[in-house]
Amino acid sequence: MGKLESAEKIGLKNKDTDKLIVVYPFKAEGSDEEITKKVTDWYYMQHCSAEEELRNAYVDLLTEAEAKSIK
C-alpha cells in the first residue's frame, strides 16, 4: 500500500514552496500512480489554463493543519 492509498485527504502542492494549491474533493482510490493521475487530471479539467502550474506541483497527503483548515 502506498502513502496516498490510505490518505483521508490529499491535494496538490507546489514543489518549490510545499504550499497547498488545492484539496482533492474525492476519496483517494487506487495505486499512488493512479491517484496522482486522477488528481492531476481532475485539476486540469477544473482549470484548463493550469498546465504550467501542474508542471511544478505534486500530489501529497494533507498535513493535520491543512486538513483542519478546510473543515
Rank of each mutant, 00 (worst) to 15 (best):
V23H: 08
G2L: 03
E51S: 13
L12E: 04
I35Y: 06
K19V: 14
D32W: 06
V59K: 09
G2H: 00
E51I: 15
G11M: 04
V59H: 01
W42D: 14
E51Q: 15
K15L: 14
T40M: 07
L61H: 13
I10N: 08
M1L: 13
S69N: 04
R55S: 14
V22R: 01
K19D: 14
G11F: 00
D18Q: 09
V59A: 01
E53T: 12
D16M: 12
E5G: 10
I21E: 07
I21R: 03
S6T: 15
A57D: 04
L20I: 02
V39F: 06
E33D: 11
K27W: 00
E8Q: 13
K3P: 10
S49L: 10
E51A: 15
S49A: 13
S69L: 03
E29S: 14
I10W: 00
Y43N: 02
C48T: 15
K68F: 01
Y44R: 01
K13F: 08
I35L: 03
L61S: 04
H47W: 08
K9P: 06
T36E: 09
K68I: 03
M45L: 13
K15R: 15
A67C: 10
N14P: 09
E53Y: 07
L4G: 07
G2D: 12
V22N: 11
V23N: 01
K37V: 09
A67R: 07
H47I: 03
V23G: 04
E52R: 03
E29W: 02
M1F: 03
Y58I: 13
V59I: 11
T17I: 03
G11Y: 07
N14M: 10
N56R: 11
T17L: 05
T63L: 00
D41W: 06
S31M: 02
Q46R: 14
I35V: 04
E52T: 15
K3Q: 09
L62A: 06
S49W: 11
F26L: 11
T17V: 05
E5H: 03
I21F: 08
V22G: 09
Y24T: 02
K68D: 11
E8M: 08
L62N: 05
T40P: 10
Y44D: 10
N56W: 11
I35H: 04
M1N: 12
E29H: 09
E5M: 04
I35E: 03
M1K: 14
D60Y: 09
S69I: 02
I21N: 10
K37P: 10
H47A: 02
K19G: 15
Y58G: 13
V39T: 02
N14V: 05
G2M: 05
A65K: 01
T17S: 08
V23D: 01
K38D: 13
V23M: 07
G11A: 02
V23L: 08
T63P: 09
I35N: 01
G30P: 03
K13L: 06
P25F: 00
V39R: 00
S49Y: 10
T36I: 09
S69Q: 08
S31V: 04
I35R: 02
L61F: 06
H47L: 04
L20E: 04
E33M: 09
E5D: 08
V22I: 10
E51N: 13
L4F: 01
G11T: 05
Y44G: 12
D41Q: 02
L12M: 02
K68S: 01
I10L: 02
G30Y: 05
S69G: 06
K37T: 12
M1Q: 15
I10C: 05
S49H: 12
